[in-house]
Each structure stands twice: as C-alpha cells, then as structure tokens.
Nucleic acid binder design. Structure first.
Lengths: 342, 342
DNA sequence: TTAAATTACGAAAACGTTTAAGGGAATGCA
DNA sequence: TGCATTCCCTTAAACGTTTTCGTAATTTAA
C-alpha cells in the first residue's frame, strides 16, 4: 500500500467503466444499474477507496469542516475548564453528523498575516462557532459580519444565531436559595465586564431588590474569571469590612479557590462562619470539602446545540432565522452555604 | 463582497496577464519581472485575495493541516487537564509555523464508517500527533503503522518518533525528596496499567531499593488517573492499615482531591498527620491549602516539541530518524509533605 | 411495426491551483 | 551583423472530484 491514494480513475480502470459511472455509483445516483453499482462498490471497498476531501471541496464548495474560534481574555485557550467542556461537546455532536472541526487562528506566518476571516475562507469552513473572544477585536467583528454561517456561544451579536447560558436565571436561583437559607448580607465578586458578567450582575441586583435586600456598594467587587489571586484579594477586602457579608458569591468555581483560601487564612470556617457560592460546576467543585454550592452549567447542551444549529444553518441555508437559544444551568446544592436565622 | 472567493483568474483578468503569471508573482518565482510582480501583488491585496486551500492541497498534495488524535481511557477528551495543556501548546507551535490542526475521529456517519486512517487520508493530513489512546485498538495501530508522519506523546511505538515525559526521573525526584524529609513508610496509589504507570511504578520500586526502603505489598494500590472516587477508597484502605504509611503518593493532582478528602474525613491533618504528593502540576494544585507537592509536567515543551518534530518530519521527509525526546518535569515543593524524624 | 419513453452509461467541462515546457523580445558577446 | 543568452511571460496539463448533457440500447405504448 503506497503513499498515493486510490482514486476514482483507478476504480474505473479496474471495473472497465468511466470515472463518471464510478462517481455516480458510489454516490448512489439512480441512473446507474443495480449490478454495476454493486460491483463498483465492492471493487472500491476492496481497493480501499475513500474520497479526497480536497477535490471534493474544490468541486462542491463544501468542506464538511467547521471552524472554531475559542479565545478568552486570559488566552488560556483549550485549558479553560468551562470552554473545554463546551468544545468537547460541540466536537462530539459535529463529528456525529460527519463534520470535522479545525481551529481558526490568525497566526499564519506562512507568507503574510491572515485575518480570522481570511483564514476561514482559505480553509473554506462551512460554518463557524465563536466563543469567549474579545468582542472589541475588529478582526472578530469582520468574521462575524462575514458571509459564513456563524453561531456564537454565550454572547449575542446582531442578527446572528447564539447559544447562551441563562445567567439571569442562574443568578436568580443562587440569590433565591441563599435568601431562603437566611442570608441577607450578600456580597458578589464578579468577573470582568462582558455580556455574561452584565447578565449576572443585573440579575443579582434585580433579584436582591425583589427580595427586598439592600446591597451596600462595597459588597460588589470586580475580580476576573478564573483568577484565584484577584478573588483572594477581593475576598480579603470583604472580610475586613466592619459589616461583613454572611455570604459571598464568587465569579466562578475556579476563582473560588482563591476566595476560600482567603477565608481560611483568616481562621474562618465554611460554612459555619461564612457561606460561599461558585459558578460553573466544574468537576472539582463537588469534590472539594465542603462541596461547593454552585450553578452547574449545561456545557453538554451548549456545545451540542451550537453544533446542531450551525449544521442546520449550513445544510439548510435559507433557515436563516435569527434566534437565540437559552440553556439553563442547574443549582447544585453543596455544603458551602449555611442556614442561618436572619 | 459576495460569497465567492476571488481567484487567480480574477486577478489575472484585472491585471491583463495570465493565471500562471499571477500564481508565480504571488509565490515569488524569479521568472517574473519586478514591476509586474509588485503590481500583481498590490491588485491581489486590494481585491482581497487569499488562496484556496482545497485547490492547493489537490495540486500540491500538501494540506498544511495536522491531524490530532487525543483519546483517553475515560473519554474525557478535551476536558483532560494534562492533555488539554499539551494540546494547547501543540496548537500554538503548529500555528506559528503555518499549520492548522484538525481532530481525527472515526465517527464519520456520512456514508459508511471510516477508520482513523481512512479519515486521516480523506483529510490529507500532512502529519499526525497521537496521545493517550488505547493502544490495543487495531484502528490506532493501523494509523501508526501507516505512511503518514506520526509523532506520539507519552508512549513509544516501534520506530516512531515519540515525545515522552520523564516519569522515571519524576518519580525518583519525588522519592528522594520524600526520603530527605524523613519518610520511610511510603505508599503509592498508582493509575491503571499503561507505559506511563509502568515507568513510574518501576522507578518507585527501584528508587526505594536504592534508598534502602522496604515497601510492603499493601502500600501499593491501583486506582485510576483522575479518578477521585477510586483514590478516595484506596486512601481509606491505607489509613486503616495497622502500620500506616507516613506519606502517600497519588496518581495525579486531580485524583489527589479524593485522597485528601479521605484523610480529612478521618480527622487527620496534612501534612502534620500524614504527607501527600501528587503528579502533573495542574493549576489548581498550587492553589490548594496546603499547596500540593507534585511534579510539574512541562506540558508546554511536550506540545511544542511534538509540533516541531512532526513538522520537521513533514517538511524534511528523509529525516526519518527514529528518536525519542524526553521531557523532564520539575518537582514543585508545596506544603503537603512534612519533615519528620525517622 | 414504429414512435416514444426509459434505462444505463460516457464525454467533457469545471472547481483553483502549480508547474513543465515553450517562445518572443531584448540583451550580451564575438 | 549574427548568434547565443537572458528575461519575462503564456499555454496547457494535471490534481480528483461532480455534474450536465448526450446517446445508444432497451422497453413501453400505440
């Protein structure tokens, strides 16, 4: 078995028919006789034939390949817990439908620099999924506004299909649970500004108001997602307040580790002395002691739906309905929030 | 700007030259006049031209695309801490050299099933990187023995280039450090059998012997990598022994969480009552309290070297030297191992 | 029996590139 | 001046497909 692939021509020679006939036989066109079809397929199988995606792409203008752009502010790339799960789910769903995935990048050092869009066209992606990018980036903007089908995750762009996690409901669930457990002095260390943060923050304030809780200004602080150090510092600040909160909401589970350390350093116990809540539901959260109360994001659905919607968009081009799919998370009740009398 | 890409022909028309001239001008061949070259390039730039990778691949038999096969026993896929870091590094290095990466899979539901090898040839990958797969899989075997350049990570296959982390040295470093801290009763909960586990286990025994430490049979137990539950159970068993170890080595950092929980559940403190060591150096390890002593794997080098070697192999085909590159980890001394008098 | 319809296949163009081969004009050398 | 070079560009084939159109053979309908 040499380096070269066996082509339609090889099969046509072996079968004594034309290339066109082989192509049609393999693609099950109905203008080919049954016997011929069967014979050709057997020979193709025996010769170890499989199509050449490049030729196919060139001819059909379809690659069966989806581009993935996952870039977070910290450039953690594939090592980002949450997005790794989403991507993994996206990948599985796409592969089940016969699509491969390739990362989009603008590093192409080959000749001249290539924008995301240029790269995407170069590779001929049938569709593109975008998550956790810096939305200010004009390069990203070009990609989104381009003419390749796009689905975005956790961010809504003008007239584009988006799959977003329900941060409004997530934060409301947290607040209502914490309230039910008797807490009235609730602090929130949030991530850096983004649509996700915005949603959570506004839901935080809104729910607080609905519940009749007053949130002092100094109870709300900005750290960054997945930043244990920043969260550690902000937590320390909260603990030094004269009127300490009884419960702290952290940006996410990973960052929570920093906050928890700050609390323990102060000699305080969780949840006896202070309660904490995370966000995301990363695997480790439920393994910590005490188990972290958090919102388990449905990363499986996020990824799968993104893939399904995108492939729909690709294969049924005129289904260009602008829609937004909302995926709810689920409150995981660990042991990090104490019941107190208010 | 329409859906269709601008092609060489469009440029040739715009410039009033032949397609060949445009192609050669853009590829900087030296049989094209300076002025013509410059003019063509300007026009190409202005028209927003970029090559069509499919046509290029078809013609040159090179795709500038690398296939990635990352499958671990638990099918954690991209969510596997360690491999996510390696992959991320591989990706960055590959992209810097103008290569894209696409995942290899055998799910192709399109028509008929496709083996890994079939998929790789279908996509025309210039090279392939393989990590953490089930080596028994005949499908994987076919891929490795095929005629596409391959680099494997953390596993050595016959006459193939491999990048492996130095598990021998890693385990020796741990043992020598723990010994130096006064420990003589050392237990090891290891992962399931694999070349990695084998290397660590044999190094564990060998170093113990060199140090003159006797390892009772019941001090060595099998769990699984990243399996907090199994590690929790094995740890409990160790703690119930009449002659308890003073130090436990866990399969990896993530699994350590389970072990640590078992210890705390017993009311024991780390490191005052018992010492523990992890492996891998995942980000969270140094954020735990106490900070986990572990081997920080050099995932950056693993990924980068794999990419460099693979691209070397691809671009300089006759450099088919069979070699094995060993990447050392670094002992991270946290606070989880106590100094005791033996 | 004959015309029309159906069936089964082939020829050839096209997708966007690269590249070997070729050739006309300008230049170098004697 | 005449011939060989050199320079610059073009023609055309090829990569492996798909697909439109054409057509010969066979079947059906009248």
């Amino acid at each position: 078995m040499g380096r070269k692939m066996v082509s339609l021509k090889d099969i046509s020679v072996a079968c004594g028919v034309s290339i066109a006939t082989v192509s049609k036989a393999l693609n099950d066109h109905n203008d080919i006789g049954q016997e011929t079809k069967i014979h050709i397929r057997q020979v193709a199988e025996k010769m170890g034939y499989f199509p050449n995606s490049a030729a196919l792409a060139l001819k059909t203008n379809r690659t069966n390949n989806l581009g993935v752009l996952f870039v977070d502010e910290a450039r953690s790339g594939l090592t980002h817990d949450f997005y790794a799960h989403v991507l993994d789910s996206f990948k599985r769903a796409a592969e089940n439908k016969g699509f491969d995935i390739t990362f989009i990048n603008s590093n192409k050092k080959r000749e001249n620099w290539m924008s995301y869009m240029a790269h995407a066209r170069y590779r001929g992606f049938d569709g593109i999924v975008i998550a956790c990018v810096n939305f200010e980036d004009p390069d990203v903007d070009e990609l989104i506004k381009g003419n390749i089908p796009v689905v975005t995750i956790d961010h809504v762009f003008n007239n584009r299909i988006a799959i977003v996690s329900d941060n409004i409901k997530g934060m409301r669930d947290i607040m209502e649970y914490v309230y039910k457990m008797g807490h009235r002095k609730i602090a929130y260390i949030h991530g850096m500004m983004s649509s996700v943060t915005n949603a959570r923050l506004s839901s935080f304030y809104k729910t607080a108001e609905e519940l009749g809780i007053h949130i002092p200004e100094e109870y709300v602080k900005e750290a960054a997602y997945r930043d244990t150090d920043a969260t550690y510092l902000r937590t320390k600040e909260l603990l030094e307040l004269k009127d300490r909160p009884t419960c702290i909401l952290f940006p996410d589970d990973f960052a929570s580790i920093g906050g928890i350390n700050a609390i323990r350093e102060k000699g305080m116990r969780i949840p006896e002395d202070i309660s904490v809540v995370g966000y995301d539901g990363i695997p480790i959260a439920s393994k910590l002691v005490p188990r972290l109360t958090t919102i388990e994001q449905d990363t499986e659905s996020l990824g799968r739906l993104a893939a399904c919607k995108l492939i729909d968009l690709v294969t049924r081009p005129k289904t260009t309905l602008i829609e937004q799919t909302i995926v709810e998370g689920k409150l995981f009740i660990g042991d990090s929030v104490a019941k107190i009398e208010s």
